[in-house]
């Protein structure tokens, strides 16, 4: 089997479209997960058991059931609740929910790593709960967990093919479909591999910059 440039070329438009779906799901799903995990982690650290317990219970359920099951539940369940968004929206919501649970766990670890003395010093200085969170806890808890959050986004990225189960055709599924039509898998799969590689490199750049900036503060 030899590489066929003209076939590869003809695959590009459809792959490009599907690639956009993958990017969309990763960027929006990843951002929602990263943002949503933070308040979730705050609930997990609440002084009140009636807040902490349910937050922890939902976390356990989301983390310990397969993403695929959650997607099916949303896909077939939401219409029963009178809401029928597009499969892509459901897919992104499912990815966001699933990874928000992991992100919450990551943030929780970040917060627990900040010594109690930091909060106490801030309390004696008169900072309110929100000011302590914003100016003392977050700046110390988040930078160390950024690599772990980055890994979550990468994991989410690699999970996007699961969306095909609810009829969302992202990059890998499109490549399989193209391959199945023409019985040539080499070109579409190679293009997908190259595309994933470029996407990772592009995504890694701002992350390294960020880590570099944060490393200026000696600890």
């Amino acid at each position: 089997m030899t590489w066929d440039w003209s076939y590869a070329w003809s695959c590009l438009p459809l792959l490009w479209q599907a690639g956009l779906i993958t990017v969309l799901a990763t960027v929006i799903g990843g951002a929602l997960a990263a943002v949503g995990g933070l308040p979730w982690a705050v609930l997990l650290r609440s002084d009140h058991a009636w807040v902490r317990r349910p937050a922890d219970a939902v976390l356990q359920v989301v983390r310990n059931t397969p993403l695929l099951v959650q997607l099916y539940l949303l896909y077939y369940g939401l219409p029963h609740l009178g809401w029928s968004p597009s499969p892509l929206v459901i897919g992104i919501a499912g990815l966001a929910l699933h990874y928000a649970a992991y992100a919450a766990e990551v943030y929780r670890a970040g917060f627990s790593a900040v010594p109690a003395g930091q909060t106490e010093a801030a309390r004696v200085l008169g900072l309110s709960r929100w000011q302590r969170f914003r100016h003392v806890l977050v700046p110390q808890a988040i930078p160390p967990v950024l690599p772990a959050l980055g890994n979550l986004v990468v994991a989410l990225f690699k999970d996007t093919p699961v969306l095909s189960a609810i009829t969302v055709i992202e990059l890998l599924t499109r490549a399989k479909l193209l391959g199945a039509e023409s019985f040539r898998y080499l070109e579409p799969m190679t293009l997908v591999g190259v595309w994933f590689l470029i996407a990772s490199l592009v995504a890694a750049w701002p992350l390294t910059r960020l880590e570099h900036r944060l490393r200026r503060i000696p600890t």
Partner: peptide
């Protein structure tokens, strides 16, 4: 009342960031 009291801790507890 709380505002009127300051504290210097054994472990300093400076904000490292």
């Amino acid at each position: 009342a709380r505002r009127l009291v300051g504290m210097v801790f054994q472990q300093f507890n400076l904000f490292p960031h």
